[in-house]
Write a protein that binds this DNA or RNA. Structure first.
Length: 861
RNA sequence: GGACACUUAGUUCAGCGGGAGAACGCUUCCUUCACACGGAAGAGGUCACAAGUUCGAUCCUUGUAGUGUCCACCA
């Protein structure tokens, strides 16, 4: 016997461990068709948040649903080493332990980093278990596993040999805090307040000067020319002149170039080739020197005279003062401009000329774009995110993949100590003593991009790779399309010649109640574990997957979690009731149209339509829509109507009692199986209380639509019955009568009804009733329906009765007017679909009949 | 400067070319044998605005306004 109240803690107790031990999570049943997903590997940097909970629950629903449908489901878990993020955290920890990180060796650091990894992996495992995720732990991977290292090296070498990876001196975004290069998308452009500073660049051998503006005066130490537009009449006479750099007194040329926008600023632009991508192009074009002026921590280097060693922003202020004292400072204007910040630590990044490794993106992007036009395309859900992807691919720049870190895949490039010859190879050169390996590691996303096939054993031709790749589906949030999804697509296409996954399901971000992003600085984050402790993991899972439409963001609202928990309690109690009415030694009856009552037929029809709708939406990954179909069935059809009405059979001495119990059990089992992917714990608990259950709900198959139990005709009396009962109840409330007050009812029927109709109407109105063909001679409140009408005789005053009738008459008239308006429109008759016209005609007739009846009635008051 | 979303009940959100839906909240009533974490019955919306397409627009198109997000090297 189930407890009176659903207690999540008791229900969840021990189930996950059992499932895991029984091996239900392990893929490999070759008799079935494969269905595979890889988890987006969480970073080993911290706790999982609600976003992870959302992301993994969606995947778990898919996995459990597909498993029930008879697939051999592989959901492969794993974690990401998260280069910069982890290294930063480990370093911070070492500092807090009092360790001098400037003296630490690479090897020592890695030892600490691995210890950190093991600790956080443990946390993540605990949270996965808490969420109830159906992960195949026998295949778990980590991005720094030996197998994955091999894959990374092989891909690097392959791309290098294909000419798709090169080493070059280019302007990259430099993170002076982490002291590493970043890729473009690791830089976040924020609109910051700043100043535009105007300086005098004196023309050599002249009293003239050019007015030159900049937002970063400290970079003036790297200026190698001033550019003007060749068509700018203001500067024509200076084309072959030189100017004096007010920062360091150096003499630099004026170079006319079309790049300069005449209309912008003063039309004269200072050019700093080593610290600005556009200036770099100009510098290359004219063969200019490209002096770098910053140290790795963005302090000023020896090129900056007396400012050497000074922080870049301090230098800016000091330099300004000095130039001003020389009279070469003109003015500054407050401006809002986009400034690049590091995604990881929010510091202002510095564009710097630097030798790094790059992936040549054009050919890879073209391949990916082309693939989206073919039949082997990756299916984005919702589809609009394909645009996001394609737009990025179409405008992509080369990808800087080297990072000046220790935690990551070390670049497999070796430099000859004497000749400087570069060897790029999966394994070190034989005479390694003559070589030194590149110190840098690869961008974290380089290895993540290989995740769907590297985790399955690539480059080995493993059975898993053969069977599960390409994967069926990938689930991720839209903020990671560029970082990860697109990189998996182009890497996979280039390296394996196959797409990485067939479907990519994109969801949104979790926000707080006010719609703000959850963040540490706002302190508005919600720990999934706290929610689970309060409401249970099933309620959290249900909330996360039923409160947004695909691709949309979602607000975390605690009341909604509570409301989900109430729903589960409702299911729990309906199950408790159904199980309580199953007699000792009960045997299911074989159901057929001959032994079912009209009410049974109605319920089974509703059930099958529900299964149909739920399944259709599950297939579309629309879990919100799917669940709401089930929700309506549970509350309205099953609990409010059938469950209550079937008591007439169960508490009476009806011969059809076993049919009713069979129907109840059938509906209950279907509900349990349909809700199971969302809320596996409560589903398992209830399932194991059903008669004739298997060892676990995890071994069950998904409910199928049974067409023979969808009845198209003969259910009108149920509709009529519900309408009449509702009106009687409403009548009692508005007339302040007790719910069980006995009323005099007279009804007329346009259809034939079963015996149950009388029983149920009687029981649920607490009233006797009489059937008559003509109600027009009777006094009382008249109610008209599609298939009949009803009079409640009562002590209501004539005025009230007349008011009510007039209201109804007005309603019927407006309906008639609407119908006639449509039907008198020749265009409607000619152009609207036939069925529409027919339904409209039928409606008109119905309302005309109702009107007639009401008017007759009104006359007699 | 581009791109993509969003604007529907008090609030959070669904939905749809042919009579506006849910949850929470609100009102009235009910502890009768699954559930008061409940039941019954209600109130509450010019579906942002404007034009167009259509027999018919909350829905499609275009424009406007507002909100949000992403992309973009303008000194």
């Amino acid at each position: 016997m189930l407890d009176k109240r659903y207690s999540p803690k008791d229900v969840e107790q021990g189930k996950y461990e059992t499932w895991k031990e029984k091996g239900y999570f392990t893929a490999g049943d070759k008799s079935k068709n494969p269905f595979s997903m890889v988890i987006p590997p969480p970073n080993v940097t911290g706790k999982l948040h609600l976003g992870h909970a959302w992301n993994t629950t969606i995947q778990d629903i898919i996995a459990r649903y597909k498993k029930m449908q008879g697939y051999d489901v592989l959901w492969l878990p794993g974690m990401d080493h998260a280069g910069i993020a982890t290294q930063a955290k480990v370093m911070a920890k070492l500092v807090s332990m009092g360790i001098d990180v400037t003296k630490i060796s690479r090897e020592e650091f890695l030892k600490y980093a691995w210890a950190w990894k093991h600790e956080y992996a443990e946390n993540i495992h605990n949270q996965w278990a808490k969420m109830g995720l159906m992960l195949d732990y026998s295949r778990e991977r980590f991005t720094l596993d030996e197998g994955l290292n091999l894959a990374v090296r092989k891909v690097f070498v392959d791309l290098y040999n294909k000419g798709l990876i090169y080493q070059g001196e280019r302007i990259i975004s430099w993170d002076p805090v982490q002291q590493t290069a970043l890729s473009n998308i690791e830089v976040i452009h924020q609109d910051d307040e700043g100043y535009m500073y105007y300086f005098k660049y004196h023309v050599v051998d002249s009293d003239d000067y050019l007015e030159v503006a900049t937002t970063r005066p400290e970079t003036m130490f790297g200026d190698t020319c001033v550019c003007v537009n060749p068509n700018d009449e203001r500067y024509l006479k200076y084309h072959h002149c030189k100017v004096i750099n007010p920062a360091n007194g150096e003499i630099i040329p004026i170079i006319p170039d079309e790049y300069v926008d005449i209309a912008f600023g003063t039309g004269a632009m200072k050019c700093t080739p080593a610290h600005d991508p556009n200036d770099f192009n100009i510098g290359k074009k004219y063969g200019l020197e490209m002096p770098t002026i910053f140290n790795k921590d963005a302090s000023m280097n020896e090129k900056c005279g007396k400012y050497v060693g000074m922080d870049r922003f301090e230098c800016r202020e000091a330099l300004l003062k000095d130039i001003e004292s020389r009279g070469d400072f003109i003015k500054k204007e407050k401006i809002i401009h986009a400034v690049g910040h590091s995604q990881r630590n929010n510091c202002v990044v510095e564009p710097m000329l630097s030798k790094q490794w790059f992936v040549k993106m054009k050919p890879l992007a073209e391949e990916a774009i082309k693939n989206q036009q073919g039949k082997d395309r990756v299916n984005f859900i919702p589809q609009r995110f394909e645009n996001t992807f394609l737009q990025w691919m179409n405008n992509i720049e080369d990808w800087c993949i080297s990072r000046q870190l220790w935690w990551g895949h070390r670049i497999p490039a070796y430099y000859h100590k004497v000749t400087g010859e570069v060897v790029v190879s999966e394994n070190p050169p034989k005479d390694i003593e003559n070589y030194v390996q590149d110190n840098d590691v690869l961008d974290t996303w380089f290895s993540s991009g290989l995740w769907p096939f590297s985790t399955l054993g690539w480059p080995e031709k493993t059975e898993d790779l053969e069977r599960y790749f390409p994967t069926s589906c990938l689930v991720t949030a839209y903020d990671i399309i560029f970082f990860w999804v697109s990189r998996m697509i182009f890497q996979s296409l280039n390296i394996t010649d196959r797409k990485p996954f067939s479907d990519v399901v994109i969801h949104g971000l979790v926000r707080d109640e006010l719609g703000r992003k959850m963040s540490k600085s706002l302190g508005n984050g919600v720990d999934p574990i706290d929610v689970i402790d309060k409401y249970g993991v099933d309620a959290l899972r249900y909330f996360l997957t039923t409160n947004s439409t695909p691709g949309q963001d979602m607000r975390y609202i605690e009341e909604k979690v509570a409301s989900g928990a109430n729903y589960l309690n409702k299911i729990w109690n309906s199950a408790r009731y159904v199980l309580s009415v199953v007699p000792e030694g009960f045997k299911e009856v074989k159901l057929s149209k001959d032994n079912l009552s009209v009410l049974d037929k109605w319920l089974l029809t509703r059930l099958n339509l529900t299964i149909k709708n739920v399944t259709a939406n599950m297939e579309k990954y629309d879990f919100n829509a799917a669940s709401s179909h089930l929700y309506n069935f549970v509350y309205d059809d099953f609990c409010s109507q059938y469950l209550e009405m079937s008591k007439v059979k169960l508490y009476g001495d009806d011969a059809s009692k076993n049919v009713t119990v069979t129907v109840l059990l059938k509906a209950l089992k279907s509900i349990i199986l349909l809700i199971y992917p969302y809320t596996p714990f409560i589903a398992e608990e209830l399932y194991l209380n059903l008669p004739n259950h298997l060892e676990s709900v995890m071994l069950e198959s998904y409910p199928k639509v049974e067409k023979e139990f969808i009845f198209k005709d003969g259910l009108e009396e149920i509709e009529l019955l519900f309408d009449m009962i509702r009106d009687v109840r409403n009548y009692k409330i508005t007339n302040q009568l007790a719910p069980n007050a006995k009323l005099g009812l007279t009804i007329s029927l346009k259809i034939k009804v079963s015996n149950d109709f009388a029983t149920l109407l009687n029981r649920f109105t607490f009233s006797e009733f009489e059937v008559k063909d003509d109600l027009s001679t009777l006094s009382g409140d008249l109610f008209t329906y599609n298939y009949g009408s009803m009079i409640i005789s009562s002590g209501v005053s004539k005025e009230e009765a007349r008011d009510k009738l007039e209201k109804e008459i007005a309603f019927e008239k407006s309906e008639i007017k609407r119908s006639e308006g449509m039907l008198n429109n020749p265009n409607f008759l000619a152009k609207a679909p036939k069925e529409k016209v027919e339904t409209e005609k039928a409606k008109l007739k119905l309302h005309q009949d109702n009107l007639k009846e009401l008017e007759e009635k009104l006359k007699k008051i």
